[in-house]
């Protein structure tokens, strides 16, 4: 009698019943194993290599902290860090401000909003390689904007940042901002749309002008979106590799070298796997420094909701 109210999975014996219980675990197992081996396993492997005597091939011989010392004695690494600082600050800053600005304008219930929104969002659909290549052509003094201006008759026009070793890093910023600000805009637009209309009405009855309403009330309400866009853009900046490779190849000289391109070159073209690994570990630490507090605050917020 008791079996009638039991769940079928529990009563049906044999292979089928066992399968019903175990199926979710079986399906999830491969992805789980793959993630553990290829993400966490290789993090450990790379970390070990950064303390080894590896050169062209992995070498398990222990070298202590020698590769790390070599890394921090390399002027190119310092240049890469400096570039990362410039890129990170300007890329995150400009993309956020521009994205917020565009979203604010789009939020004014304009005509053809869907169409315009798509235009701004499309760059995100391109890979960084395509973005880099297109911008390389546009910025090339002999092909792009400078030539166009010369052809129009403005022969004094000069725009050669991409071949100028002091300015080349800013071209990376330009291409990156072009690619990402539309995405940031979409995030902010979603946030702005979630703002209760009545708050804006209340503020305008309170006597605040529209710019003031935005600055004093609505932008502060966007705090979580500022945080998310910082995290998204931040990790894009730290791991940016393809954009630089396509746009400048790290040049002229090593003027636009970034940690990621430095790591690649040390590991695969300079036969210096140990130093490459050391730089990779440094990048991991940097990303973790951004992600861990973010995840911590997110998880804590979720807990708050559940409670």
């Amino acid at each position: 009698m008791s079996s009638i109210i039991d769940r079928p999975a529990a009563t049906r014996g044999g292979v089928l019943g066992w399968l019903q219980v175990q199926l979710p675990k079986i399906v999830l197992a491969p992805t789980c194993v793959i993630t553990i081996v290829f993400v966490y396993g290789f993090i450990l492997w790379t970390t070990y290599l950064s303390f080894s005597r590896s050169r062209m091939f992995p070498n398990l011989g222990w070298a202590g902290t020698k590769p790390h010392e070599n890394l921090w004695a390399n002027p190119v690494w310092y240049k890469a860090l400096e570039n990362l600082a410039i890129l990170g600050t300007l890329y995150i800053g400009i993309a956020t401000v521009l994205g917020l600005f565009l979203a604010t304008l789009l939020d004014q219930r304009i005509r053809q909003e869907g169409f315009i929104r798509t235009i701004y969002l499309y760059p995100m659909a391109l890979s960084f390689i395509v973005t880099g290549t297109v911008w390389k052509w546009m910025l090339n003094p002999g092909l792009g904007i400078e030539k166009l201006m010369h052809d129009f008759g403005w022969t004094g026009f000069q725009f050669d940042w991409i071949v100028n070793s002091d300015m080349a890093i800013y071209t990376v910023v330009m291409a990156g901002v072009w690619q990402s600000s539309g995405f940031v805009m979409a995030m902010f637009l979603a946030g702005l749309r979630a703002v209760d209309d009545e708050i804006i009405k209340a503020a305008s009855i309170d006597g605040a002008s529209l710019p003031r309403i935005y600055v004093r009330i609505i932008f502060p309400m966007m705090r979580p979106i500022f945080l998310s866009s910082f995290v998204v853009l931040g990790h894009l900046a730290i791991k940016s590799f393809d954009l630089v490779i396509a746009l400048t190849g790290g040049g002229p000289g090593f003027a636009t070298e970034l940690p990621a391109t430095f790591m690649y070159k040390q590991t695969f073209t300079r036969n210096n796997i140990a130093v490459g690994s050391a730089s990779a570990v440094m990048m991991l630490v940097t990303v973790a420094a951004i992600m861990v507090p973010y995840l911590y605050s997110e998880l804590r917020a979720q807990k708050g909701v559940q409670r």
Binding site: D196, E198, I199, K201, A202, D206, A208, R212, I217, M221
Partner: peptide
């Protein structure tokens, strides 16, 4: 002065600032 159905309080300000915002403006 208007009281709204959703109250329309400014979420980023304290109660004090909410009340005094209109005077501040």
């Amino acid at each position: 002065a208007m009281v709204f159905q959703s109250y329309a309080l400014y979420p980023n300000m304290t109660v004090e600032r909410n009340i005094s915002f209109g005077m501040e403006m």
